[in-house]
Amino acid sequence: MTFQYKHIQSPLGRILIAANEEGLTGLWFDQQKHHPNSDAWHQVTSQIWLDQCEIEIKAYFDGGLCEFKTPLSVTWGTEFQKTVWQVLKQIPLGETVSYGEVARRLIKSKAFRAVGAAVGKNPWSIVVPCHRVVGANASLTGYAGGLERKRSLLLLEKSYLCNL
């Protein structure tokens, strides 16, 4: 399967977005943990899913997008990770849940550490809202893109709610 990619700019730094013919395969901030090796991928200036994602990311940061519509192409991850990522997609804009709550939603209440590892490897930063998962005491912990970005994303989303 061929991956195509391009870089886009955001208020929180440069972002790598990747796609194949089925949809978006990933979105990562520069220097983010678990950033993939894209040496074998093909850099492009335009591709249907990359272009749609770029438009949505710009709208998100401008405060005009509450839900991403670009289809995702799930090309990696264990079955457990994929299940965790599905739960992340259900966390509403402007809300946060704990790692333990994600584990409870999976009916694996003692698996919060495994949930944390799966959340950290989410390949679709922002689009699959792993930044909405916080520590048990609502502390900001464990964002592969960095805690300052996590804080900024959550504040941005709170400001959306004030404008609705």
Rank of each mutant, 00 (worst) to 15 (best):
K110A: 13
S125R: 15
L106R: 15
S109K: 14
E95F: 03
R104A: 13
P71W: 09
K89W: 11
F112E: 11
R113Q: 13
S109D: 07
H131L: 06
E56L: 07
E67H: 00
I55A: 09
V115I: 04
E54P: 06
V115R: 00
I91E: 00
L106V: 03
W124P: 00
T70H: 08
V74R: 07
G63V: 05
V44L: 12
Q86D: 14
E67D: 14
A117G: 07
W124M: 06
P123V: 01
E54G: 05
W76P: 01
C130Y: 04
Q43N: 07
P123N: 02
K82Q: 07
Q47P: 11
Y60G: 00
K89S: 06
S73N: 12
I48E: 03
G120M: 13
H131E: 02
I48F: 09
I57Y: 02
A114N: 11
G77P: 05
W85R: 04
L88N: 02
L65I: 14
W85F: 03
L65P: 14
V119A: 02
S73C: 05
W85E: 02
G63W: 12
L72G: 12
G77L: 03
K108L: 10
A114L: 08
G100Q: 09
E56V: 01
L50I: 11
L72K: 07
F112L: 13
G100K: 13
I57F: 01
I48T: 00
W49P: 00
K121G: 00
Q52M: 04
V133S: 14
G64A: 12
S98V: 04
K89V: 02
P129L: 11
Q43R: 15
F80Y: 03
T78G: 00
P71I: 02
A59H: 15
Y99A: 04
T96W: 04
R105N: 12
K69T: 12
A118R: 06
R132P: 03
Y60M: 10
Q43A: 15
I55Q: 09
V119D: 02
A118G: 08
V102W: 09
S98D: 14
G64E: 10
G63L: 08
I57M: 01
T96R: 13
I91T: 13
Y60H: 05
A111K: 14
G120Y: 13
L93T: 06
G100R: 07
E54S: 13
P92M: 00
N122G: 11
T45V: 13
A111T: 11
G63Q: 08
V84G: 09
E54V: 04
L72R: 05
Y60C: 02
Q81S: 08
D51T: 12
G116Y: 11
Q47H: 15
T83D: 01
E54T: 14
G63R: 08
V97D: 14
T96A: 05
L50G: 11
V115C: 01
T78C: 01
K110T: 13
N122Y: 15
Q86V: 12
F61K: 09
R113K: 10
R132Y: 08
P123R: 13
E56A: 02
R105F: 05
C53Q: 14
R132C: 10
T83H: 11
Q81H: 01
E101R: 10
F112I: 11
L72A: 03
T83L: 03
T75K: 05
T96V: 07
T75G: 07
S46F: 04
W85N: 08
G116K: 10
A117H: 13
F68I: 00
R104V: 15
S125V: 10
